[in-house]
Design a protein around this nucleic acid. Structure first.
Length: 742
DNA sequence: ACGGCTGGTTTGTGG
DNA sequence: AACCAGCCGT
């Protein structure tokens, strides 16, 4: 992304003033046209690696420096926290001066910001809380309990899924479209869940967007305020916006229509969460006066990789139609590897990374990409075994871990005593003798007096009917919260977090257990203190803030940010992530793993008939690679603890054979990765005559089991390189080694 | 009240 | 294999 553009634009430029500008100079002709086009509706169709982010970043810089726009008059919407951060950094680099007042962030973060500023107009309590998926599921279950609905016949997960889908499309429970409105059970749960959230002041991720939309749509004063404030609206990854997000952008820009959208229909991979490519395909209908630009020159990948990407994506129908091209040479051939199991796949990938690092590459130039997060496990095990540093993105987030949520619940109660979900979560965590009986009576009191659990617990303490044991326990709990709250007034954030861990008794509780999980929980809690510390230092320049505000802001931050950062990116490590989270990134070497039918494309997508989105995901994966691409598949994989046979992904069959000049057989199904590219037809075998292939597992009398990672020579001099997890890598001559294929 | 056990269920991608 | 809800013994 941040590489230099090889085009020398001075020859193309006719404007002398512009030649001097670092904002314009590094751009190619199409990029420059897009960046410098006069304000108004603009659509940039940008292929993978064609400088999409670059166009957006330079557009913002151009608006500020050349067009004289104030930073605070610009709002830029991205999809991930990561790309928001990257854009912010790159703009500051370009402009040298910090860009104060520029609104740049994810749709969710920007929505939250508007809702916090206008909580009253949005119909929310001042202390509303953002809840994650797990909390949302908990509330849905409670709703269903209240409605006496059986979880077996109405799976809460499915209901959650459907509620979110409704919110993505802008539907409230009382206003469901067609068929859904006939599902009385569903609309009842949706309604009840929403009422619950409103009472408790809870906002789920979908609600964050829907509320923002409703706020802008229904409140003229707020709408006009933001319309006047923001003279320019910019959208990254436009193909992934859902209905509500696009409507928000339209509302914000409706008075001036200065909307700059950048995207690639071929990289639309979020249909499952409501994304509408039509927002992009119909842009010119929405804005007949829009200017459209196409960026088709790819600066990222070598020729073979780009050909593979084009071959895959050309199998899709209904595309806007773009053809990426490059000046680069073909580069290194793409490699397909088949392994026996996921363990072997991991051993293989890690071996390659090892030798690549040994020959001078950095760890973080290697990415291991997979369809589902569960696949990271096998790779992590191998990387740990071989002592290679790595970072996993996605999966369970730091702030979603149970121990972290417990710690945060204490802090939330200190800020807002009426946070019932937090009360519920930690009133008996660590266990302090407040069980079902006690809580049932507290809940009853709360319902009768229409108060929060906190208020009700005070009534229970004063009520002689309450058992003295319960009374004492509740008193103790209330004292802990009050104590943390009083400390929050004059203690710096990190010290406050640290003290609250002890005051709450969480540290003591987890310390009692010497088990592995308990130890990692303690470590995570310590990490929370570090996270608080770095949050303070990173945000201190944003002006002096009250101590209490600081805690509030930190809690806000934990709702949307994935976790403590800086460690992964600063630290040179192998990058592990899902294909979805890899979007927008690039790596020298990419391992696309688990390329098996049923896994990728995923079985559920196959049965939903959603193959085209899976294919785009494959396209995204391939186009992440700059120099080397490995496509891996296993012939057997453990699913739910049982080994299952796997067929190679149908996407592999869609790649033309000329991309694999090393391969001697055309069909990948028969083409076990060839042992000895380009050196005759010798077949390597073990002592029984079983063919040896790259990636297969063999047994050696002295070294044990290992994976074949390389081979050379023929006849008596034929030898193979084997990676033994215990002993490391060895070259062994076949005639002597007595290898047995397993 | 609470922790440990058991058997049934489950994992698709993210803010 | 890992996670959970529900059951049971202390």
């Amino acid at each position: 992304m941040s590489r230099n553009n090889p085009i020398n634009p001075t020859r193309l430029s006719t404007n002398t003033a512009m030649e001097e500008s670092p904002i314009i100079t590094p751009l190619n002709e199409e990029q420059r046209k897009a960046v410098t086009t006069p304000p108004g509706p603009v659509l940039v169709l940008a292929g993978a690696g064609s400088g999409k982010t670059r166009a957006l970043v330079h557009r913002i810089a151009w608006l500020i420096q050349e067009h004289g726009t104030a930073p605070w008059s610009i709002i830029a919407m991205t999809f991930t926290n990561k790309s928001a951060r990257e854009m912010q950094n790159r703009i500051e680099e370009l402009l040298i001066a910090p860009t104060r007042g520029l609104w740049i962030g994810t749709f969710h973060a920007l929505g939250l910001r508007m809702l916090r500023q206008n909580w009253q107009a949005a119909g929310l309590p001042e202390q509303f809380e953002v809840i994650d998926n797990a909390d949302q599921l908990r509330q849905i279950k409670k709703s269903m309990e209240e409605l006496k609905l059986d979880e077996k016949s109405f799976p809460p997960k499915q209901i959650l899924w459907r509620i979110n889908a409704c919110k993505d499309d802008g539907h409230r429970a009382h206003n469901l479209p067609g068929e859904l409105s006939k599902d009385e059970i569903f609309s009842l749960v949706y309604q009840n869940y929403q009422k619950r959230c409103q009472q408790l002041g809870l906002v789920d991720f979908g609600e964050l967007l829907l509320r923002t939309y409703e706020l802008l749509k229904n409140n003229q004063i707020v709408r006009e305020h933001y319309q006047n404030k923001f003279e320019h609206v910019l959208i990254d990854e436009f193909q992934d916006t859902n209905h509500i997000q696009f409507q928000c952008a339209l509302l914000l820009s409706s008075s001036h229509q200065n909307i700059f959208a950048v995207g690639d229909d071929d990289q639309s991979i979020y249909g499952w969460r409501g994304a509408r490519v039509e927002n992009m395909l119909g842009f010119n209908r929405t804005f007949p006066s829009a200017s459209t630009f196409r960026l088709e020159q790819n600066y990222r990948s070598s020729g073979y990789i780009l050909q593979a990407a084009n071959a895959i994506i050309s199998k899709n129908s209904g595309r806007l139609g773009k053809r990426l091209w490059t000046n680069q040479a073909d580069g290194e051939p793409i490699q397909i590897y088949r392994s026996y199991s996921e363990t072997e796949e991991a051993q293989f990938v890690v071996s390659i990374i090892r030798s690549s690092v040994a020959s001078g590459s950095a760890h973080n130039e290697h990415a291991i990409l997979y369809r589902s997060n569960a696949q990271s496990r096998a790779f992590e095990e191998q990387l740990i075994a071989q002592g290679i540093p790595y970072s996993v993105y996605g999966g369970m987030r730091f702030f979603e871990r149970a121990e972290i949520k417990n710690a945060l619940a204490y802090l939330k109660l200190a800020v807002n005593r009426d946070s019932d979900p937090s009360f519920d979560r930690v009133v008996n965590m660590p266990p302090r003798g407040i069980g079902k009986q006690t809580m049932d009576s507290v809940r009853l009191t709360a319902a009768r007096h229409n108060t929060s659990l906190w208020e009700a617990s005070l009534l229970a303490v004063d009520d002689p009917e309450t058992s003295s044991r319960s009374r004492e326990s509740l008193k103790r709990f209330r004292a802990i919260i009050e104590r943390i709250a009083s400390l929050s007034k004059d203690r710096p954030l990190d010290a406050l977090v640290e003290t609250s861990l002890h005051e709450s008794g969480l540290i003591d509780h987890y310390s009692k257990d010497r088990g592995e999980t308990a130890i990692s929980r303690i470590e995570n809690l310590k990490e929370l203190v570090t996270a608080a510390e770095s949050y303070t230092s990173e945000h201190s320049q944003e002006g002096p803030s009250q101590r209490e505000d600081e805690l509030n802001l930190f809690l806000n931050h934990t709702a949307l940010e994935p976790g403590p950062r800086g460690t992964e990116e600063a630290h040179d490590s192998v990058q592990l992530m899902s294909l979805h989270s890899a979007k927008g990134l690039e790596f020298n070497t990419v391992f696309l793993c688990g390329m098996e039918d049923g896994l990728f494309p995923h079985q559920l997508s196959i049965s939903e008939g959603n193959l085209e989105e899976e294919r785009r995901l494959c396209y995204v994966g391939i186009t992440r690679a700059m120099q080397k691409l490995y496509l891996c598949h296993a012939s057997s994989r453990t699913v739910f603890g049982k080994p299952m046979r796997c067929m190679p992904s149908r996407f592999l069959a869609e790649l033309p054979e000329n991309l694999f000049p090393d391969a001697r057989q055309s069909s990948f199904q028969r083409q076990n990765p060839e042992m000895n590219p380009g050196s005759g037809d010798a077949t390597m075998t073990d002592i029984f005559g079983n063919a040896l292939e790259l990636g297969c597992t063999v047994h050696h009398g002295k070294f044990g089991e290992g994976t074949v990672i390389n081979a050379e020579g023929t006849g008596a001099s034929a030898r193979v390189q084997i990676n033994f997890p215990e002993v490391g890598q060895k070259w062994l001559v076949l005639n002597y080694a007595r290898l047995k294929r397993i």
